[in-house]
């Protein structure tokens, strides 16, 4: 079986600072691959490069068998790469429903339609309502997204990402700032996705990471120092020294 995403020798520097340093990793279809590492390890920059927001200095990104290194973010999104942002990125003036429906719209037919009202398109609002219900946001559908609570916004952003029917989800700290109940719900939803959608998860919540991940990669100073099953990572002495050890101390 070939990997869904393969990152090879990715490098990115800002001035003298090497944020990504010859990084390689892969995500198998349906796998939940978590990336952990101390602050400043280059996790968000990695997500930016895979999603097409930041061009790498060197290296290749292969997605579904194609080299997407030179493709735009929108092009990668249409190919099946969806992402969430560390700092919530939604359309605050649109209702929650419109936010999700717009993401559905991106994958269903031309958006150069000028005359028929988009709010009346059941083909868009139907799937959008279903997704909102899955995240427990059905009641909030008509509310302006900007008026939702922080945790609800994080869930909405996940719903938006899923609405594009992705093959791979890039999630940048989806649990940051959510309440205990909200984060439990998100973990539940992510667990439900495994097998159907591959996920590359950057997350600080170790409990969630070790509960969810099929594989874990540890990123330190822009390099992957270890990749393996959660138990193997937990007991890897190098990882403990570089990362987990600090947490325990």
């Amino acid at each position: 079986m070939t990997a869904l995403l393969r990152v090879e020798g990715l490098s990115k520097s800002y001035g003298a600072l090497r944020v990504t340093d010859g990084l390689s990793l892969s995500v198998e279809p349906g796998e939940l691959h978590a990336v952990i590492g101390p602050n400043g390890a280059g996790k968000t920059t990695l997500i930016h490069q895979i999603s097409g927001m930041t061009p790498p200095d060197a290296g290749r990104i292969l997605f579904a068998g194609e080299d997407v290194t030179g493709r735009s973010m929108a092009g990668r999104a249409l190919a099946g790469l969806a992402r969430s942002f560390q700092i919530t990125s939604i359309l605050p003036r649109f209702s929650a429903l419109q936010n999700v429906a717009l993401a559905v719209q991106a994958r269903s037919g031309s958006s150069f339609r000028f005359l028929s009202p988009v709010d009346g398109e059941a083909a868009l609002t139907g799937p959008a309502r279903d997704l909102l219900a899955r995240f427990g946001l059905a009641e909030r559908a008509e509310m302006p997204a900007g008026a939702l609570s922080h945790g609800e916004k994080r869930q909405l952003e996940l719903a938006i990402a899923l609405a594009t029917a992705p093959k791979l989800l890039l999630l940048d700290e989806p649990l940051a700032g959510t309440s205990h109940a909200e984060s439990a719900r998100i973990v539940e939803i992510l667990r439900g996705l495994t097998g159907s959608v591959a996920i590359l998860l950057v997350e600080h919540d170790m409990e969630a990471v070790f509960a969810l991940a099929d594989r874990v990669s540890v990123l330190v100073y822009g390099r992957v120092i270890a990749t393996g099953a959660p138990e193997a990572i937990r007991s890897n002495p190098e990882v403990r020294a570089a990362y987990l050890g600090e947490e325990a101390a």
């Binding site: 927001m53 973010m73 999104a77 249409l78 990125s89 939604i90």
Partner: peptide, 8 residues
């Protein structure tokens, strides 16, 4: 940026 991330 959000628009590009969903494919527009």
């Amino acid at each position: 940026v959000r628009m590009e991330a969903i494919g527009f």
